[in-house]
Design a protein around this nucleic acid. Structure first.
Lengths: 144, 144
DNA sequence: TATTGTTATACTCTATAACTATA
DNA sequence: TATAGTTATAGAGTATAACAATA
């Protein structure tokens, strides 16, 4: 097999490049709020959920021990809190504090504002088309 | 202003989500080759260039001192080498070794293979359209 | 005995500040 | 004096392994 997936290289590179551009925007928004990218993801995940340490680690693809430290630091800053799990004496649930929720909202707005200049290089019709294509790629079966 | 850039939120979220998906693929490819994402970027940047420490730091948005350590470790693994700059006794140029170049090629193939299943959720025509839209967003003026 | 989370340890990535060698 | 790079130091993120408490 000499030329597998001929033609997909340009798209691969464009996806990688747009990923680095987007991650740069996300990282800057995080840094401006004194957060790491991982803490940012944690706040995003916990916006509408309360999860245990293990579940959070699963979502992030990290080890439990890593989350222990991560939550320690966020808790020390008043963004997250540990509450005992009602049905299991060993487990704790991680919840966002009001301060954490406020920060998450603020930084979500930052990101929209920062990506705005890039997306507005496209016409509204192109923006809708791009969004549709990305969503189809991410969720081919049309599920959530 | 209550609703700035109405309509761009869906695209913003899709971009962020596709960035996390792509970065997950890149991170896994890097980890499989025992590289960090930053080292991956260094190898990508040096594929067709030789740069000084400061220039490399500029490309990556990092401090010189960070690059010192990064290059140390890559040099110790035989992936990069320091060569004195011909025209400035203070400077060094960072070049890829043959082993580094081979690794860069291998991992580039890994990435294409790993992104293939995602991009093939789209028809060839859609793939071309997505690539075109991403490129227009990244380079609105049509420059390289 | 198995699972949940924490702790101990180690390594990488990153930045700031102080330093050296050259310009 | 200014610049290129290194070193020292410190903190965050990450993993592995050992551990305590609970199931």
């Amino acid at each position: 097999m000499t030329e597998p997936q001929r033609g997909s290289e340009g798209l691969t590179d464009a996806l990688a490049e747009s990923a680095f551009m987007t991650m740069a925007v996300l990282s800057k928004a995080a840094a401006d709020n004194d957060l790491s990218l991982t803490q940012l993801r944690v706040l995003g995940i916990l916006r509408d959920r309360r999860l245990r340490i293990s579940a959070l680690a699963g979502f992030l693809g990290l080890e439990k021990s890593t989350l222990s430290g991560l939550v320690d630091r966020a808790e020390k800053r008043g963004l997250l809190a540990r509450v005992p799990a009602p049905d299991d004496g060993r487990a704790v649930e991680i919840v966002m504090t009001p301060a954490g929720a406020a920060l998450a909202e603020r930084f979500h707005a930052d990101i929209r504002a920062a990506l705005g200049p890039r997306t507005s290089a496209l016409t509204p019709a192109e923006q809708r088309r791009l969004q549709g294509l990305l969503e189809k790629m991410l969720r081919p079966n049309g599920l959530p």
